[in-house]
Design a protein around this nucleic acid. Structure first.
Length: 286
DNA sequence: GTATGCGCCGAACGCTCG
DNA sequence: CGAGCGTTCGGCGCATAC
C-alpha cells in the first residue's frame, strides 16, 4: 500500500516541535493553486473542530491520569511538578513540566482542504470519504479517527516535553523516549529497543534473522510495565508484578475493573477456569 | 548504514445503548 | 444480545539522528 500520503514534513526532534501560538500561525496558499473548494460530498465526515474536545475515557484522561513514570535506577526520575512549576531542589536539573501546548487554527478544516487533491476512487456504498484528503474508509469510526490527523489540536500531551499526540498509544510510545524503557531486547546481542519493529529491523540487518511473520501478522503480545520496564509475555505474571510493585498503577485498576465485569457476566466459576487468572490476597483475580 | 522517533493505519477490544 | 462506536494495540514506512 502506498504510504506516501502518511508522511508529514518532519519538524524538529522530540521536544523541538515548532509549536506556535495560534496568532503566530501563518498559512501559505497552495502554490499550485489546486484547491478543492467544492469537495465531494462526504457521507458523514465529522467537523474537525468537533474532534478537539478531550476524551473522558482515555487512559490519559481525567479518570486515569497516568502516574509519572518512575524509571529504575540509573534512569533519573523527574520530579512531579505542576505546569510551570520548578522543583525547588533540582530546578537546575529538571525543566519545569511543560503545559500541554496545542496547535490550532480557527479554520483548520478549510485550510486542510487546500491539501493536494489525491487520486479519487469512486466511493462504493458504505465507504466514507474524507472531505479534506478524499481518502476512503470502510467504516465511519475510521473516518472519524482519520479526521483527527487533519486537526491541529493534539489531545494527548506529553507530561515531560509537552508534545501532543492524537493517539494515546503514540503518546505511550513516545514516553519511552523519556523513561528509557526498552521492552524489546535482542537475545543475540542484548541490545534493547523501544519498538518491536526496531528490534526486528536490527535482527534482520545485523544478525540476518528473518521473521516468520506475514505482512501485518500480529506478533505475540508482550506486556510491558511502563513504570519500571518489566516485561512478560504472560498476563498473569505481568499483573502479579503490577500488583506487587505498582499497586496504584492505572493498569491494575483497569484490570480489576475488567475482572469485575467478567465476574458479573460469566460468574466466578468461569474465571477460576481461566488459566490466565490467579487469586490475589484481596480476592481479585490477577 | 543503522537506530530512533513517530504519523497513520487496520484490527481487536470493550463499552453503551437500543 | 447485537450493532455501533470509541479506545487500545501493534505494524508499516518514512524522515531524521547518530
Amino acid at each position: 500500500m502506498p504510504r506516501a500520503f502518511l508522511v508529514k514534513k518532519k519538524q524538529a526532534a522530540c521536544g523541538g516541535w515548532r509549536w506556535r501560538d495560534p496568532e503566530q500561525l501563518e498559512w501559505r496558499e497552495d502554490p499550485s493553486g489546486v484547491s478543492d473548494s467544492t469537495p465531494e460530498k462526504t457521507l458523514s465526515a465529522p467537523d474537525v473542530s468537533e474532534l478537539d474536545a478531550p476524551s473522558q475515557t482515555s487512559d490519559f484522561g481525567s479518570e486515569e491520569a497516568p502516574e509519572l513514570a518512575i524509571p529504575p535506577v540509573p534512569i533519573p526520575t523527574p520530579p512531579v511538578l505542576g505546569f510551570g512549576e520548578q522543583d525547588p531542589e533540582t530546578s537546575q536539573d529538571w525543566p519545569a513540566l511543560q503545559p500541554p501546548r496545542q496547535l490550532y487554527h480557527p479554520n483548520a478544516l478549510a485550510l486542510a482542504s487546500r491539501a493536494k487533491p489525491r487520486p479519487r476512487v469512486a466511493p462504493s456504498s458504505g465507504d466514507f470519504l474524507c472531505s479534506v484528503c478524499h481518502k476512503l474508509f470502510p467504516l465511519q469510526r475510521m473516518l472519524t479517527r482519520h479526521m483527527k490527523c487533519h486537526s491541529l489540536v493534539k489531545r494527548h500531551p506529553c507530561r515531560y516535553c509537552g508534545k501532543g499526540f492524537n493517539d494515546t498509544f503514540d503518546l505511550k510510545r513516545h514516553m519511552r523516549t523519556h523513561t528509557g524503557i526498552r521492552p524489546y531486547r535482542c537475545e543475540l546481542c542484548e541490545k534493547a529497543f523501544t519498538q518491536r519493529c526496531s528490534l526486528e529491523s536490527h535482527k534482520r540487518k545485523i544478525h540476518g534473522v528473518h521473521q516468520q511473520y506475514a505482512y501485518r501478522q500480529r506478533r505475540s503480545k508482550i506486556f510491558v510495565c511502563e513504570d519500571c520496564g518489566f516485561t512478560s509475555n504472560r498476563p498473569d505474571e505481568y499483573f502479579v508484578h503490577i500488583r506487587q510493585c505498582h499497586p496504584g498503577s492505572p493498569a491494575l485498576r483497569r484490570y480489576y475493573r475488567r475482572q469485575a465485569h467478567e465476574n458479573a457476566n460469566f460468574g466466578v466459576a468461569e474465571c477460576k477456569l481461566n488459566p490466565y487468572l490467579v487469586y490475589s490476597n484481596s480476592g481479585y483475580f490477577i
